[in-house]
Design a protein around this nucleic acid. Structure first.
Lengths: 190, 190
DNA sequence: TATATACTTGAGTGATCACTCAAGAAAGAA
DNA sequence: TTCTTTCTTGAGTGATCACTCAAGTATATA
């Protein structure tokens, strides 16, 4: 008996994610979202409940996509190859609305206000860090890098460098490709 | 004949800077500023003209202080020593309201909206990058590091790593001291 | 076709945004 | 003391914020 929605929910979340990713939480108004999603206020709140609820869905989709990207790179290039390919991938990805990491931007913006979404973003960052540690561990098991380093320490440094690269890459005239190459090459010397 | 203001202008800018630095542009309302600066709307606009004008003054004061900090470190530890000491300094500085760089936060938040303050912040970032390149050049002249690298390339990478460190250092449970130490140590191997 | 169950619409809510301005208070010069 | 100039005050501006809800519309089942 019911009537079906005229939209694709996952597609709406993806479009909202791109907008939040680029413009941030405060920088994206309900009016912006209504325009981009072609949704009137009533439909928006019936579908998602609140701006924050949609933002959380967007964060989760971002994290899932990021994990999938890393898994695909591992499948294509192996654990060390994935870690070396990721820096270039994130700054060259034309489908992305921004170079900087949405998790880091969210955490930076909302953490000082004690907003729950900041903790949520930080949790995703931590899970990504663990994923990096897994890959460093696998690279050691395959004798691609020395076993002299703690995989978690390598992941801590790698993620930090990656966040720095992705922020720097937003700047006009910044040679992000050079920094990405250096990060990748430094992994070969481990 | 005139009446003097009852406040210290530089002190007001410093307090506004700390608030903008921690909470960002959109995250800091006029009401917040009026409370912290003990200024009614009329006095605020008579003194600074607009929220954006005060933000720019805050950015400039931040940049001047940053340059002074770097100069002091150079005086104390020499060019290479300053570059090695800075990572630890920025994450341990108890006077700072945040670990992350205010210039980077400003650029990240306002750049997608084409806000003039984003360009202003990026200009300061570029000048800091040049200052880093100067120090790398001096370190080469003093035979502290090899002359095989381009100082500007070293500065490009160093600044990116520093931005990453400072963002990571905002996260709870992140071992920023370890990453800061690794950045410093990597400079000894140049 | 009739009915039940959604989904869609858009005007409207109070709160907060950055900002204005006219009136009053204070302090140095005469 | 008086006058002039500036600073201080705080109610008030229109715009925008996230969000609500009652009324209208479309669709799958019976």
């Amino acid at each position: 008996m019911p009537r079906k929605p005229s939209y694709d929910r996952e597609d709406l979340i993806r479009r909202a994610r791109d907008m939040f990713w680029k413009q941030g939480w405060a920088g994206t108004s309900l009016k912006n979202l209504e325009t981009t999603l072609h949704l009137k206020p009533g439909s928006f709140y019936a579908a998602f409940g609140s701006k924050d609820a949609l933002y959380q869905l967007a964060l989760d989709q971002y994290a899932v996509d990021g994990a999938a990207t890393l898994a695909a790179l591992e499948h294509a290039h192996g654990p060390l190859g994935a870690l070396q390919a990721l820096p270039r991938h994130v700054i060259e990805n034309k489908a992305a609305p921004a170079r900087a990491c949405m998790l880091a931007k969210t955490f930076l913006e909302l953490s000082p206000h004690g907003h729950p979404l900041a903790d949520h973003a930080n949790g995703h960052l931590t899970r990504m860090e663990h994923r990096f540690a897994d890959l460093f561990g696998k690279a050691q098991a395959q004798n691609q890098i020395s076993i002299g380093h703690d995989p978690h320490g390598l992941a801590r440094r790698y993620q930090s460098d990656l966040l720095g690269l992705r922020i720097s890459a937003e700047r006009p005239d910044y040679d992000a490709a050079a920094t990405a190459l250096e990060i990748a090459q430094s992994l070969s010397r481990l």
